[in-house]
C-alpha cells in the first residue's frame, strides 16, 4: 500500500507537469480518479502493455475520458512513457490526446470523451467476453456527472438483465461536474440505491483508500453479479491547493509552482 501511495504521489506530480505544458488537461478530475487507477494498474488488473484489439484479457474502460491524463501519468511512473513525450500531451500529432482516440496508448476504449458512451461500450465488451467464454473482466470507471446521461442507465439495465458478473463499474463520485456541484446541477439521489434497485452488487468506499479499494475489487470479482463500487473521491485530491475545488484547468505558472511544492514520501 505504501508503494501505491508513492506511485500515486509521483503520478500527481507528473499530472501537474503535464498541466504546465497542456492547457487542455482536466486536472481536478484526473486527480480524483488517480488512486482508483493506481490500485487497478498496481494490482495488475489492467496492464499498460495490453494493446487495443480482440483479446480475452481484462479491459479497462475509462468512460470519463477527460481524465485520461491520469493514465498517462501512471504509465510514465511505471516506465512506459518518458517525460519528453509526456510534455507533448495534447499537441497536434502526439499520440497522447486529451480524450482517448483510436490510437491512444494504454487505453482500451476510445469512444469516451462524450460521456456515457464508455458505459455502453463496457457492457458490450462484457457481453462479448462472456459469449466467447473468456475469463477476462471489464473494469469500467465513470464519473458521477456522467450518470445524468440516459444512456448510462440504459446500459446498466442491460448489464443487470444479462447478469454480467464480469462487469465491475466504479463510480468516481467526486461531486463535481462542468457547471458546479453534481447534486446541484442535477439530482443524483441515492446512487448506491439506484444500482441496488437494478440488481447490482453494490459497495461504497473511500476512493482514496487503497486497502478499501483493493478489498472492494476482490469482493466484486467474487460476487457473481454485475457490480458497482461507489467511490467517494475529492476533486483535486493530493494537491492541497486544488482539493475540493471544481477547477479543471490551471495556468502554467501555477501548475509548475504546485508541482515543485508537492512532497512525495
Amino acid at each position: 500500500m505504501e508503494q501505491l501511495s508513492k506511485i500515486a504521489c509521483e503520478a500527481r506530480r507528473r499530472l501537474l507537469l503535464m498541466a504546465a505544458y497542456d492547457p487542455g488537461i482536466h486536472i481536478g478530475s484526473s486527480l480524483s480518479v488517480l488512486d482508483i487507477l493506481t490500485v487497478i494498474y498496481g494490482s495488475g488488473r489492467a496492464k499498460f502493455n495490453a494493446h487495443n484489439g480482440v483479446s480475452t484479457r481484462n479491459y479497462l474502460v475509462l468512460s470519463k475520458g477527460h481524465a485520461v491524463h491520469a493514465i498517462y501519468a501512471l504509465a510514465s511512473v511505471f516506465g512506459h512513457l518518458n517525460l519528453d513525450e509526456l510534455r507533448e500531451t495534447g499537441s497536434l500529432g502526439s499520440r497522447l490526446q486529451n480524450h482517448p482516440e483510436d490510437d491512444t496508448p494504454f487505453t482500451d476504449v476510445s469512444n469516451s470523451g462524450s460521456l456515457g458512451l464508455g458505459i455502453g461500450m463496457a457492457v458490450g465488451l462484457a457481453l462479448g467476453l462472456r459469449l466467447r467464454g473468456a475469463q477476462g473482466r471489464v473494469y469500467l470507471i465513470t464519473g458521477d456527472g456522467e450518470l445524468d446521461e440516459g444512456l448510462s442507465w440504459e446500459s446498466f439495465a442491460v448489464a443487470a438483465s444479462y447478469r454480467l458478473s464480469n462487469l465491475i463499474a466504479i463510480v468516481d463520485l467526486n461531486g463535481a461536474q462542468l457547471d458546479g456541484p453534481s447534486e446541484e446541477v442535477l439530482r443524483k439521489g441515492d446512487i448506491a440505491g439506484r444500482f441496488k434497485a437494478l440488481g447490482f452488487y453494490v459497495q461504497t468506499i473511500d476512493g482514496h483508500d487503497y486497502a478499501q479499494a483493493a478489498e472492494a475489487l476482490e469482493r466484486a470479482e467474487a460476487s457473481g453479479a454485475p457490480s458497482v463500487i461507489v467511490a467517494n473521491t475529492v476533486r483535486g485530491k493530493g494537491v492541497p491547493e486544488l482539493e475540493g475545488s471544481i477547477r479543471q484547468r490551471i495556468p502554467r505558472d501555477e501548475a509548475l509552482a504546485l508541482a515543485s511544492r508537492l512532497k512525495c514520501q
Binding site: 455502453g120 461500450m121 462484457a126 459469449l131
Partner: peptide, 21 residues
C-alpha cells in the same frame, strides 16, 4: 440480444461487441 427500448444503448453495446471481435 434485446436491450429494451434503448437505441443509444443498442448502438454503444454493439460497438463494445465489435471491439470484442
Amino acid at each position: 440480444f434485446n436491450v429494451g427500448i434503448a437505441e443509444q444503448a443498442m448502438a454503444a453495446i454493439a460497438a463494445g461487441l465489435a471491439a470484442a471481435g
